[in-house]
Design a protein around this nucleic acid. Sequence first.
DNA 1: TCTGAAATCCACTGCAT
DNA 2: ATGCAGTGGATTTCAGA
Lengths: 156, 156
Amino acid sequence: MSSLDAIDRQLLAILQSDVSLSIEELAERVGLTKTPCWRRIQKLEKSGIIRRKVALLDAEVLGLPVSVFAQVKANQHSAEWADSFAHTMADLPEVVECYRLAGDYDYILRIVVSDVAAYDQFYKKLIAHAGIADVASTFAMEQIKSTTELPIPTGE
Amino acid sequence: MSSLDAIDRQLLAILQSDVSLSIEELAERVGLTKTPCWRRIQKLEKSGIIRRKVALLDAEVLGLPVSVFAQVKANQHSAEWADSFAHTMADLPEVVECYRLAGDYDYILRIVVSDVAAYDQFYKKLIAHAGIADVASTFAMEQIKSTTELPIPTGE
DNA sequence: TCTGAAATCCACTGCAT
DNA sequence: ATGCAGTGGATTTCAGA
């Protein structure tokens, strides 16, 4: 799959900040007419660079103002355990992020909940999973930045 | 602003997973006709529960496979310093998330880069900011989960 | 490849229930 | 409040450069 030119990158930058613009508006911004602009976007979607188009909701308004980072240590490191842990993460809707780490802790999770009590409930669900040796929870006091916009590399 | 009923929550759940569906399709899924469905979505957008509609890009395909968590300690805690740090975070496109913490470290950042060398470059930019006492970097080995879908609370 | 026009589809409005 | 029908504007396709 061929690489991106400057216009593709421009389109991606715009779309990852706002996908509700019309093709016409988009075409204008990148200096194209509607048809080629539309074709490029189709191609970007087919290629998978554009994974999906989603609505971002306001966690505060939804009543979910609390983010907690939980760092997890496993007491075993078999492929089976890792797999079962990954499935557990997928099944817990409060877990919005989970990364396996190279460090002291094995995983870091970000959990989104309504309040401290809800986190405690989540915590109990989490440690119910067999093989978890340690969980260190850190509450976020303030969201300084949170974006889905990736820093698109320039074509050197 | 009045609270959400079951249909609103259903709509939000669908839209935060896919915003490209037609009103007709959406209406069908929640058991409404197009007009009331459209009106509800308008209301959800006006109210701010739907913050924005964006395209999610594939970091791997874009050549950004590396996520790093950086925990930062400040050597001062004035409002001015916090403000200037927040602005720095906003200005660094590699920083996709930044939270102020209640814990040992003052901030946690997730940084998205192409490789280890690129992280080192970022690291130098970061510590150039005055007043940073300590930065602990942890590389993510694997993304287990990363979603923008919030766990929409049920109407009890 | 891009342009421009044609055709089809869908969001949006006004009216009735 | 929901549902239906029509209009305008958008997306998508097609012909030509």
